[in-house]
Design a binder for these strands. Structure first.
Lengths: 202, 202
DNA sequence: GCAAAAGTGTTCGGCGTACACCCATGC
DNA sequence: GCATGGGTGTACGCCGAACACTTTTGC
């Protein structure tokens, strides 16, 4: 079982990797994962692993794909069920360890990975882009309230291209994923921005 | 590992089920599946199972979802990696057995199934409907050449609604999934129909 | 008053949908 | 010549994309 954990910080899509502290592939970076614990369902295992590394629960978490043999498992015939999750960086408290240390990596700067983990991340990114188009998956990448600009920056980071402000605003409001709050946020010598929240969440 | 095998016969979407001849759930119907064989990849296992039951190879076959505990496996912690496949009924030769006998069932008339197999079929049908919209997956449900009406009937069976002949034709030809051949097929006292083939599928 | 980000409307092309008649053939 | 299915065109509403100026605030 493995969990591809994405976040967006400073306009960059980042993924959480773990530095392996044992064979095989000791010293290389890899997607967080591990074996199922006794009596645990697949989803419970993914939730647990996500919480272990980031301290976060109740976020977007979805099964991605099952790979044949990229797992670190010792015995042949085992399979790697990959999940992917989206987290708000403000809520994350990375596990503090020296061995098996987790760290964020920008997608553009990923180091050579153990097993075929590059492929897994690639599949996850493709799915993420798809999900963004027709679901409110982004709710999991932002605080409860946020400005339109913040939301747009998350979309741009994931899609890898800039978007038109007016079209973005119109399209998102048309979906009913988000709703305006009555609050504004002042943040510098310019007009304050309205805060929005995801409808259907919280 | 399990394979949801779909076909369309006489305007009805059908799924292949196996009558179980051993515990657990002996006597009930279930999705074809089984354990991985030694050294086999997940996809190879799905291909093998599909060939065992239908004699068919080289068709649409795609991973669907991995379920935690609906497998018939005896030991806890095993997972069921589900695949789904689309086959042309004309190419199928069902395995002839008395035990573990395979049979086609219309989706509307499915008997009570072993484990949670209803759920798996449901997920597969939803994915199939999605795939049909933006891929040429239907290539696998029809012979090499076919008439527009035949193709439309396949779409209608899967989508569960009738489609407008003119719009269907225009939309399909716009995709470049299919191309006209120079052949016609006469079949009764009316104008012969042009035959089409899937482009990109030899 | 000016710098900086927030907020707002219109036009256009493409796509899905609704809808009705002529065409080619076999008998 | 008529019954049967094959084959075609137009109009309209919606949606995504392109594009520039006014508003509100802090200093």
């Amino acid at each position: 079982m493995l969990v591809v954990i994405f976040t967006v910080v400073e306009g960059a899509l980042q993924v959480l990797l773990i530095e392996r502290s044992a064979a095989p592939a000791e010293g290389r970076w890899a997607i967080p994962g591990g074996a199922l614990q006794h009596g645990e369902s697949l989803e419970q295992a993914a939730v647990r692993k996500l919480a272990e590394e980031t301290g976060v629960t109740d976020v977007f978490l979805e099964q991605l794909y099952t790979f044949g043999d990229l797992d670190a498992s010792p015995h042949e015939g085992s399979v790697g069920v990959a999940w992917f999750a989206l987290v708000d960086p403000a809520r994350v408290r990375l596990a503090q360890r020296t061995a098996w240390r987790p760290e964020w990596w920008s997608l553009a700067e990923i180091p050579p990975l153990a097993f075929d983990n590059e492929l897994v991340i690639d599949v996850a990114r493709t799915r993420l882009i798809g999900k963004l188009q027709y679901t409110d998956a982004a709710y999991s990448l932002l605080p409860t309230t946020f400005t339109m600009r913040e939301l747009q920056e998350v979309y741009e980071a994931i899609l890898g291209r800039t978007l038109d402000k007016r079209n973005f605003r119109r399209r998102l409001l048309a979906t009913d994923f988000i709703a305006a709050t009555s609050e504004l946020r002042s943040d510098g010598r310019h007009r304050p921005a309205r805060l929005y929240r995801f409808a259907n969440r919280s």
